[in-house]
Design a protein around this nucleic acid. Structure first.
Lengths: 225, 225
DNA sequence: ACCTGAACACCGTTCAAGT
DNA sequence: ACCTGAACACCGTTCAAGT
């Protein structure tokens, strides 16, 4: 619309091109903006183009496909974070790493789902992996077990954050689901008899799971050593 | 195509209607078939209708929306399983429950992704939840911690199975990703120095994570008691 | 009550054309 | 080199019409 009103005037001699000249950087920035504000489903080539005041096909000059775009967006988001907290104790180092990971996923709703999607996970996912594998050297685990431990941690973290990021749909909150089902409840006595608080504490739930996994790694590593 | 060739003949007097009379059951069965054979992305109202020899809109007589269909498909798949193995020891009971859960997700590729999708998770997800919460009574954990432990277990299981179900894309297998990145590797020394087998053992990785979480629950519960 | 056919408002992407 | 516009092959779903 606005583009149609604008006549094809000659461009000024290389100065003050205002918001002209689409670049890959601008496309990725706009993609991250869009995903942060409207969720991952809102990221559409057409919507993104609208947002940039350009035709959908203009994006393909800077991005080879939607998958390429999403991978670049995920890479940019991941590059914000420093996963190495420099703790001497491996338990604290691992916990700090995944607290950063979680905070990043919550700051960019939809990032978790992006990282779970095949093909879009960027090379930067190896950054928290590297920190974790290094810390886990102190456990005495072999290479395979350290990698298995990492996948346990990252799977837990991604599933918790992507679950939380879907909110605020009240019916998805654990405590509400439990309550809703209690009303319709038949056949799930241990679920029905749960005594739950009014709101679910996602932070505490994450810390609980993180402690469980770290202590579990400690126990399993000790048994195998 | 085949439907167009068929003239609108009168139906036989209530006998041998062959494959006539679409029912909700048939729609759900066909949906599960389709998702099992071609993956969750193949489940499309139009494709499913084609598969049933019917117009896309005919499905809406038995299913209120695509979400409704997917939820029903997930419910049917979940109803196949018995999560309660009747173990006396809570650790073995929990492990058995999630081994069944995992086997179910692997038998129906795409089920894991369905269960991770908001709104489509059916009420039947409370079945493994009930078994787990009951077993965890033996740990002495309070209601909140038992639920947190359940979410840790289910998140881990879903992420592992949905990761595995995306295969067999060789570039997604952990060991291959690691190897691929090692080549392009810069800045991830602990990743690059990994000594990995040629193929990734998903079963062993799952058992490792399961042991880690169960022993972690044991340790955390003991500390809080 | 159940199904069809046309239509609507979307997708990602290709291709030929403009500058 | 970069962008546009029309088009293609898809989506889920609405609506009016048939039987």
């Amino acid at each position: 619309m606005a583009a149609a009103r604008k006549p094809p005037r000659r461009r000024a001699p290389a100065t003050t091109q205002t918001t002209r000249d689409l670049t890959r950087d601008k496309v990725i920035d706009a993609g991250l903006d869009l995903i942060d504000r409207e969720g991952p489903d809102a990221v559409t080539m057409r919507r993104l183009a609208d947002h940039l005041g350009v035709t959908p096909m203009a994006l393909y000059n800077h991005v080879s496909s939607k998958t390429d775009l999403l991978r670049a967006v995920a890479e940019r988001a991941l590059s914000e974070a420093e996963f190495d907290a420099g703790h001497a104790d491996w338990r604290e180092q691992v916990k700090a790493c995944f607290r950063v990971f979680r905070a990043l996923c919550l700051r960019h709703p939809g990032l978790a789902r992006l990282l779970e999607t095949p093909d879009v996970a960027p090379a930067a996912v190896f950054s928290p992996m590297d920190v974790t594998l290094r810390a886990l050297r102190w456990t005495g685990c072999n290479d395979q077990d350290r990698l298995r431990a990492y996948f346990t941690l990252v799977g837990f973290t991604l599933s918790q954050t992507s679950y939380q990021s879907r909110g605020p749909f009240p019916d998805l909150e654990p405590s509400d689901r439990v309550r809703a089902e209690r009303l319709a409840g038949r056949g799930y006595p241990s679920v029905e008899s749960l005594r739950m608080p009014a709101t679910w504490d996602f932070d505490a739930a994450f810390e609980f799971g993180l402690s469980v996994i770290v202590r579990g790694i400690e126990a399993v590593a000790g048994a195998r050593r």
